[in-house]
Design a protein around this nucleic acid. Structure first.
Lengths: 359, 359
DNA sequence: ACGGTTTCCGTGCGCGCGCACGGCGAATTG
DNA sequence: CAATTCGCCGTGCGCGCGCACGGAAACCGT
């Protein structure tokens, strides 16, 4: 494209503008102490010959110690937010090639005070940029106000607030994911739609979400129901609530449910925890496994997929989201690169037993 | 994690190892002229304190004009290899942050002489690294021999030769992709397997491949047949050959085929060109569209997917493959980073009408 | 005319590393 | 034993830029 041969340097610009390197430098950084005449000269030369600073020399001379801090919900092994942490780990490799370090601050997503503390801790780290998963919306708004005031760029992952101070957002299209879930579930009778009247669906939900007003999967459920209404309006759909904190109880809960609701042929679960019910299905329905579709590539889910107790997983790449969010901030910080898109809805992957291996 | 404050430099290593900067440098680059004693000392210190070179200083001092050259089949808009070129374009962004430029040399994949010429042209560019799509296997072997002799690292995309001089390979698991194709195609009767005896499959193939001994999709077809034998041994499978150079003829060919073979319910195509037959299906089978599954995310294929004339596409991310191959070479050149894996079989994406939007 | 500001500008140093050059002691050779 | 070679090593320069320092005009008031 452009000739890299006779690389144009700041010195060249200085010479061509009839000034010194220092003056060009002052112009480039709007640092004042430059006469209008010199300023114009320099600017003209820069435009004319298309000078671009050498970022390596710049960074080397600068030698800053930037760090990107992630603010995420804490997690146990195998849980949803672990994937985000994994993505952060991957981003580290990229960041460290730019001498940017990555730190993570965790909070309890069910304890607003821990979030407040985490915010204070985060600011104490004096981050060069921040990645947020905004579970507590009001408190997050407070934090981002501070960040904006301090000129610290930040990005959202998973969910975003409706404001426009953020650099990027990486998330999943929730409504569509529910729609897709229904489609995959009922693709099993696509060639014989008249079989629909023998089909019956169980939606597995979390006990705690039953009375929760802000269920994060509500939109997804909406997409699911819309698909069903459009394509299979007469199929029966039942909900059953399990308690994820007490895995022992799940077999019992489902056993009672299947007895009370015979003929369940399809199972769906809208959060990331379908791995919790896979063993129960294997025990209770070994003979005639219902077709099950769930979300997210947790290790437990992938294992169940491989065992055959789950037919499809729809994944949103939480790790990728985090990785890309960090990278966008690093690019912005180091290379002055504006992101291509502010809002990035990630592609949903469909995982089956036969394409999970090279995942 | 590590303290970035007192950044460890090459000079520190030298001091701690009781040698000079030059010696450390020689060790780092395996440049010889170092006594075993000094070598061991330096290596130990490096391990101990976890020294990592500052790439900015490194690149700045280096200031070479390396270029990575891609050797790919030429293409028209909307064809398979265009995706590889697109991936190269994306890699450019990454490469340029390291002052590495990307060049592409194209050849006619049906003309061996053009390949030979391309090889000469490539060597004339004195590349720092090369990415290859080895259509002509024998000639490619000749080229790679030269590259090895000159110490130029290279990577394969799409296909590889069975040798072990390459740095990385990025491709798709072909057998599995065929297996997956069959599964997706017949998932439509998964809940009512007894419907299988009313199903009939058409495999659309390319006229030119009929007598070709090295059909690149042969392995894929094998996976497909294995799945069918295992799960639906009695389903009828018919092949029909079309001429992609004469799109006008396709409707006629398929029309005759459907007449001769009534009751086709499923259609599969193992190369990237299923977009060629989508219009024909829309015309000939508007009333009862067969279920069609194809490969690769060509724009034409995606459009047909959106229109509903294709049910699923299995994609192998040719663009990603190329991008990653280039990146692995850049990392190797600039950062001395060995690739994590030599052979990288890419994940296969399943695309349906409902997850294609954010692709 | 002279001291004191203000405005504007040039120069030198250092960031950490790659590499060429030259040097020094020990081994080898005639 | 002197001359040469060889193995090993240290030093200096430059990559392009940021920034601090100091200095030269120009301007001002007395």
């Amino acid at each position: 494209m452009e000739k890299d041969k006779g690389k144009i340097t700041l010195k060249d610009v200085a010479r061509m503008a009839g000034v010194s390197r220092g003056t060009v430098d002052r112009v480039l950084h709007n640092r004042g102490d430059v006469s209008k005449r010199s300023y114009d000269n320099v600017m003209r030369v820069i435009k004319d010959i298309g000078y671009e600073p050498n970022i390596y020399a710049s960074i080397l001379a600068h030698d800053q110690n930037r760090s990107v801090v992630l603010l995420l919900p804490s997690y146990h092994t195998g849980e949803y937010w672990e994937m985000a942490a994994r993505g952060a780990e991957q981003a580290k490799a990229y960041a460290r090639t730019f001498n940017v370090s990555i730190e993570t601050v965790l909070y309890d997503q069910y304890d607003i005070d821990s979030f407040r503390e985490a915010c204070i801790q985060l600011l104490g780290l004096s981050p060069a940029a921040v990645v947020l998963a905004p579970v507590f919306r009001n408190e997050t708004a407070v934090l981002t106000a501070v960040l904006r005031e301090r000129g610290i760029p930040y990005s959202y992952v998973d969910t975003k607030l409706e404001e426009d101070g953020y650099l990027t957002f990486y998330g999943m299209p929730m409504y569509k994911s529910g729609y897709l879930c229904a489609e995959l579930l009922f693709d099993s009778i696509a060639s014989v739609p008249e079989a629909a009247d023998q089909m019956k669906v169980a939606l597995i939900r979390i006990e705690r979400d039953r009375n929760r007003k802000s269920d994060p999967t509500a939109t997804r459920r909406e997409g699911f129901f819309d698909y069903m209404t459009e394509h299979y309006p007469d199929v029966e759909i039942r909900s059953v609530f399990i308690n994820p904190r007490d895995p022992e109880s799940i077999v019992g809960t489902l056993s009672a449910f299947f007895t009370a609701n015979p003929g369940i042929t399809h199972v769906a679960m809208f959060n990331s925890r379908i791995h919790l019910i896979a063993p129960a299905l294997e025990i209770l329905r070994a003979g005639d496994m219902p077709r099950a579709v769930g979300f997210d590539n947790l290790d437990g889910n992938l294992a169940a997929l491989r065992r055959g107790s789950i037919r499809y997983l729809i994944t949103q790449h939480t790790d990728e989201q985090t990785r890309l969010a960090v990278n966008s901030l690093v690019d912005y910080l180091v290379l002055n690169k504006e992101p291509e898109r502010r809002d990035n809805y990630m592609h949903m992957d469909i995982l089956s037993r036969n394409n999970v291996d090279d995942y």
